[in-house]
């Protein structure tokens, strides 16, 4: 997905000079492979011209490429100097749920555990009805209500802004689940999608799927293996989105960012004024969920 995304709207021939906005637009349209790409580029031009106008060495129009470079710059800094944030453009989200699925695949999430559902909101009355899609990852609040409640300090706010969970310490009391005002934490009840199915009884959910389920995940940079009959972590734990910390530390953007068909999800270091997310957070369309609670989420929405 990253490669596909990287080709969207990228000018192939700049001939050493700066392309005009009109040329860029035409090239972007020509290079667009589908409606999602069209949406990304058009929105980029119409709403966030700054993204495309930058004359720097990054490829104009390519938000993913820019975010990758932002990521590299951020990783070159000490952890406490970074502040990871996510920006989600609701005008661009097409509700495909690719982010939800890629997150499940990336983290090998079992039944009942979801890090990034997409909430659908319907407004208006017929014939003036409009749908809006609101992806809801963990908000990684600057003032998280979920961390101080943990009786054993198994969840905390890292210096880089990510709210992490120590799976080896979590006792599974689910107090943090109750404390989160976004329902962003889920509990791993030790279940398997293929549980109870006879070996090979289903072509698509037999041993192959079972193998998928027991494949390790690499959350927080460790190898976590879920095996039926075992109660080992992360089974029994509270689980949540960690901005794909294991990917970030390996110089990769979070799975939901790279797989977003509409190019609606942005990620980067808010402490870097040159970063794309820093620019987007300054938008007049910026809002955060339940701002009134004072949780100071690190996930921003462009409404």
């Amino acid at each position: 997905m990253e490669q596909a995304g990287a080709s969207l709207g990228k000018p192939r021939d700049t001939k050493g000079g700066r392309a005009t906005r009109r040329e860029l637009f035409a090239r972007a349209l020509a290079a667009a492979g589908g409606l999602s790409a069209l949406a990304l580029t058009r929105e980029g031009l119409a709403k966030e011209p700054a993204i495309l106008d930058r004359p720097d060495d990054w490829a104009p129009g390519n938000a993913l490429e820019r975010m990758r470079r932002d990521l590299e710059r951020a990783l070159a800094k000490p952890m406490e100097k970074r502040k990871w944030v996510m920006v989600i453009d609701l005008e661009k989200c097409i509700g495909c749920k690719a982010c939800t699925v890629s997150c499940v695949a990336e983290n090998n999430l079992p039944p009942g555990v979801v890090y990034r559902p997409v909430v659908e909101e319907e407004r208006g009355e017929f014939p003036h009805v409009r749908k809006r899609f609101i992806p809801r990852p963990c908000m990684h609040c600057d003032n998280p209500p979920c961390t101080p409640v943990c009786p054993v300090g198994a969840t905390w706010k890292r210096p880089d802004g990510i709210v992490a969970v120590d799976y080896d310490a979590c006792i599974g009391c689910r107090y943090c689940l109750s404390a989160c005002p976004y329902n962003a934490r889920t509990a791993d009840f030790g279940e398997f999608y293929t549980e109870g199915l006879a070996e090979g009884s289903e072509a698509f959910a037999g041993p192959r799927a079972s193998g998928y389920e027991t494949r390790p995940s690499f959350e927080y940079g460790k190898e976590w293996r879920r095996t039926p009959g075992s109660h080992a972590s992360p089974m029994g734990n509270a689980r949540k989105c960690q901005f794909c910390l294991h990917r970030i530390e390996n110089h990769l953007l979070p799975a939901c960012v790279t797989t977003c068909l509409g190019g609606a999800t942005y990620f980067g270091d808010f402490n870097d004024p040159e970063s794309l997310v820093h620019e987007l957070v300054g938008s007049s369309r910026m809002m955060r969920l339940k701002e009134e609670l004072g949780t100071e989420p690190s996930v921003f929405y462009l409404a």
């Binding site: 101080p148 943990c150 009786p151 054993v152 310490a169 979590c170 006792i171 009391c173 107090y175 734990n237």
Partner: peptide, 19 residues
């Protein structure tokens, strides 16, 4: 009710008194 019953002792060995 605990997800990890055998870790209950941790509340005594590594308490977080904010909780």
């Amino acid at each position: 009710d605990l997800g990890h019953m055998w870790r209950a002792y941790e509340v005594l060995t590594r308490p977080n008194f904010h909780s």
